[in-house]
Design a protein around this nucleic acid. Structure first.
Length: 539
RNA sequence: GGCGCUAUCGUCUAACGGUUAGGACAGAGCCCUCUCAAGGCUUAAAUAGGGGUUCGAUUCCCCUUAGCGCUACCA
């Protein structure tokens, strides 16, 4: 639960950022804002109870404003499939937005025309769709180039940027310590204008204050705490490329400002970039958003996850295709770098939303534990099995039906029998794939005998199963109880240990030595099918 | 190289300076049992190294080491 201190801290930041816009709400009527908020909250399915904790009117008022003004964004660039690291960034943004009744924005950062692909964009949508996570607004950077250029112009007009006519081909000195192009930085305005007018290509660079002029850039990271850097240590980074398109830094900041983003939640790889971004926000004259950087997801060797080095395990669709439940994946990913601090491991989406806060976010990179042989982190698999076991069987049946349909296995849906079958099987399966693979004898007529099953179908057992088949056929009543009674009675008559016949029965019905209790099995397999399978192995 | 960030069991993590350093996954063992699971119980396993500060450091400070990130007209 949120403490009023959190709320206060949060509201303080947002209050500053959006002072102008919210003036109209400022409070003649707390109750009106409150009603509005309540609506927002309902939308986000969270409760209003945290508010009642703010006793003081001023903080209560600010909380209200902050809460409904909160805006976060997920800004992927469509240059590959949806990476699990990106998915995690989305998830954390989403959790934070939903936790506080804020607005979740999807912004496609596609300023790099060279590398963007439509396929990649589709892969992002596909991944997000699987996660069953939503967003409230959507933008595409390529539609906002005018804004970016205007922002660049605004910075340039203040003398905070300069034109660099150095040809792209000439690489910056490789011996490190590159900060600025002195010749270009000091170029006179007249000379700069003349060359630009003559059509000479240039890169627009930010004029980073040097030793004599600037002190430090500092900010408070919501995860990493106080951050600061000597401004003079920053290089004169590019704002506009020589073809006039904005760089990531410019486009991102201009959009964040324009979209009134209040909290930038992103990977820790942007922590150092934040200093540049702060310079841009300041140059643009807009209020800085708050920042929360997330520790990175890395491979067991400590390297950043990459498709080239680590293969398809870094793509969210791989998890989907392996039969994981979105809820388990989200649960797993959320626990990488974040902890509810109370020893809970399995959390529902609602519990995640309810307990998420930056205080629980760790600062060191998290290893996704996979190997060549075992491509999925064992914990992800375990969480999946836990979710399969604890979710309503009808819900699981829905996913199972989809999975089976995908594999071309016809199955009635919705259907009580399916629900029962799923319920019987789920305690020993760990992914949805298991239903379509190990579950074949339950959902189709295909029975493939495994070696252990064959061993259990001893000659006396086969004789017994033959008799059992006749007896079941003779008795119109067919329930778990009648089957058990018949089986045990028969075992006694034949002088066999019940287990021998029971195990043989399972082998005959499923071809599998491992599986659910034989007595629950018969009714799920069905009377006719069961009898014919018994006869097929009978002697 | 410069700058920044990080450092607890194999992995994910907990421990607002005082705990027998806790939990989970994976491992081992036991119980349960018609098989396999599930479930229950038990077990092994960690504060990177060195200095401070303190009555007392996993915790605060410094150094070393290691890892990661930024250092592009990529994002």
């Amino acid at each position: 639960m949120q403490t009023s201190r959190d709320l206060y801290r949060l509201s303080k930041g947002c209050f500053k950022t959006t002072l102008y816009e919210i003036r109209f709400l400022t409070l003649r009527s707390c109750s009106r804002a409150s009603r509005f908020l309540e609506f927002q909250f309902r939308k986000a399915q969270t409760s209003l109870s945290s508010l009642s904790r703010c006793t003081n009117i001023a903080s209560r008022r600010m909380s209200i404003l902050a809460l409904f003004m909160l805006r976060v964004r997920f800004a992927p660039s469509p240059t590959g499939f949806l990476h699990i690291g990106s998915a995690r960034t989305f998830i954390f943004n989403w959790l934070y937005a939903r936790r506080h009744g804020g607005t979740m924005i999807l912004r496609i950062d596609d300023t790099d025309v060279e590398r963007n692909t439509e396929a990649s964009l589709q892969s992002i949508y596909e991944g997000l769709k699987w996660l069953e996570l939503d967003w409230d607004e959507e933008y595409r950077q390529s539609n906002r180039l005018d804004l970016h250029r205007a922002s660049a112009q605004q910075i340039f007009a203040q003398g905070l940027a300069y034109r660099d006519f150095t040809p792209a081909a000439a690489p910056a000195q490789s011996d490190g310590a590159w900060l600025a192009n002195p010749g270009m930085r000091e170029l006179s305005a007249a000379e700069s204008d003349r060359r630009a007018a003559a059509g000479e290509k240039y890169v627009l660079r930010f004029r980073v204050p040097r030793e004599s002029e600037g002190g430090e850039v500092a900010f408070q990271d919501l995860v990493y705490g106080p951050q600061s850097k000597t401004i003079a240590d920053l290089e004169d980074f590019a704002l506009l490329r020589s073809d006039g398109t904005p760089t990531y830094h410019l486009a991102s900041c201009a959009d964040d400002a324009d979209l009134k983003i209040t909290h930038v939640i992103r990977g820790q790889d942007h922590l150092s970039n934040t200093f540049k971004h702060l310079l841009i926000f300041d140059a643009l004259g807009c209020t800085r958003p708050q920042f929360a950087h997330l520790p990175l997801l890395v491979a067991p060797d400590g390297a950043k996850l990459s498709k080239r080095r680590h293969g398809p395990v870094v793509s969210v669709t791989t998890y989907r295709d392996a039969g994981l439940l979105a809820r388990a994946f989200i649960n797993f990913i959320a626990l990488l770098g974040w902890s509810p601090k109370d020893n809970r491991e399995q959390l529902s989406r609602a519990e995640l939303v309810e307990s998420f806060s930056f205080e629980g976010v760790n600062r060191s990179n998290a290893v996704v534990n996979f190997t060549e042989e075992e491509p999925f982190d064992p914990k992800a698999l375990w969480l999946n099995s836990q979710h399969m076991r604890s979710m309503p069987a009808t819900d699981l049946a829905c996913y199972v039906a989809q999975e089976l349909a995908h594999d071309g296995i016809p199955v009635p849906f919705p259907d009580p029998w399916l629900v029962q079958a799923v319920d019987l099987l789920r305690a020993r399966y760990i992914t949805l794939k298991d239903f379509a693979q190990r579950g074949l004898p339950y959902f189709t007529d295909e029975v493939v005998m495994d070696a252990t099953s064959l061993e259990r179908l001893t000659s006396p057992a086969r004789v017994g199963l033959g008799t059992l088949a006749s007896r079941l056929a003779a008795n119109p009543e067919f329930t778990d109880a009648t089957v058990e009674a018949a089986l045990r009675a028969l075992a006694a008559e034949l002088g066999l240990k019940p287990g021998v016949l029971i195990n043989a029965a399972r082998a005959a019905l499923t071809g599998q030595a491992a599986g659910p209790s034989a007595f629950h099995l018969f009714t799920i397999i069905g009377r006719d099918r069961a009898i014919s399978r018994l006869r097929a192995v009978a002697e």
